[in-house]
């Protein structure tokens, strides 16, 4: 581990001030949220910032709130742990709480922020597939004022987003959703915790009647393409069809065909594709069966089988 080169650190009180600092000091600056990525980049990956703008004093970036129309606003500095244990999120979208709870350890989740995780654009980020199936929007503060982009078009590649230098991700908006929406997130990794997803699958769907006819469905995949992706072919397989083992399996096959995984030290591309197939199927079936509240870890483990 390298001792960082000295750099200046600023602690602005407003977004405006943060952006101005960045413009004023020019290149070589980094925004700091939880620091769980930035600190490692500095200490272990040779990143040498000229200066760092710490966003943690900006109150408006924190908190999770529910609007009257039913939309949810997650401040960019909401920690993973806050998302995991938030009452409103675990009541309305338990699979989103769970996806946040899959990140690292509790210590990491106490520091890591949801905005930082999204801005960092890691293909395997756990919360992103869950947010994609909720059709979340991302608000950024830019030179030309506030912008809103669908999360799906936010990512350009590993570590790359539509944000330009000096832009700040300020909040994540989850639009109003039906109270009957059901969902699931499965993180597939060899270990039970402290692991990166080999494959992440999120599903959100609405069904009609007792027949489990699928009216609306969204499926998203993590860690199997350069950016987290919606699996639209898989979705198309299910719409207006009864959800059962057979249709879920076919949706899984479609998802496996449309993802573009790589082979690396963790797993081969072929295996990842199979795991997309299996876990997409399971996520669909789990979503239909519903999930009893915010499950503790051990119960969550059981759910995987």
């Amino acid at each position: 581990m390298k001792r960082p080169e000295p750099f200046e650190i600023f602690q602005p009180a407003s977004i405006q001030e943060a952006r101005e600092l960045h413009i004023h000091h020019g290149p070589g600056g980094y925004f700091l949220a939880g620091g769980t990525d930035l600190a490692i980049a500095i200490k272990e990956k040779g990143l040498v910032p000229r200066y760092v703008v710490d966003l943690k004093r900006i109150g408006s970036l924190s908190g999770i709130r529910e609007n009257a129309d039913g939309s949810l606003v997650l401040g960019a500095l909401a920690t993973m742990r806050e998302v995991e244990i938030s009452r409103v999120i675990s009541r309305r979208f338990p699979f989103l709480s769970q996806s946040a709870g899959e990140v690292g350890s509790i210590q990491i989740r106490n520091r890591a922020t949801i905005g930082g995780n999204i801005a960092n654009a890691t293909p395997s980020a756990d919360v992103v597939p869950a947010l994609l199936v909720l059709e979340a929007q991302v608000t950024t503060s830019t030179q030309n004022g506030e912008k809103q982009v669908p999360l799906e078009s936010f990512f350009l590649g590993p570590g790359k987003t539509v944000m330009e230098r000096g832009d700040i991700l300020t909040e994540i908006i989850i639009p109003p959703a039906s109270a009957n929406l059901r969902g699931e997130y499965i993180k597939f990794s060899p270990r039970e915790m402290m692991d990166l997803a080999y494959v992440g699958v999120a599903v959100a769907l609405l069904t009609d009647g007792d027949e489990n006819v699928c009216r609306e469905v969204r499926i998203a995949l993590g860690a199997v393409s350069p950016v987290p992706m919606r699996a639209r072919k898989a979705e198309a397989v299910l719409v207006n069809r009864v959800i059962n083992e057979e249709s879920a399996e076919r949706a899984g096959e479609a998802a496996a065909s449309e993802c573009t995984p790589i082979s690396d030290v963790r797993a081969s591309a072929a295996y990842r594709r199979h795991m997309v197939r299996v876990n997409t199927k399971r996520a669909i079936l789990n979503a239909v069966c519903g999930r009893p509240g915010n499950l503790p870890w051990v119960a969550r483990r059981e759910r995987r089988y």
Binding site: M193, M194, V298
Partner: peptide
């Protein structure tokens, strides 16, 4: 060595 860190060299955790 492709995995000289605990990120990809997987020891068991208490939950495993």
């Amino acid at each position: 060595v492709k995995n000289p860190s605990f990120l990809d060299y997987h020891l068991v955790t208490s939950l495993d």
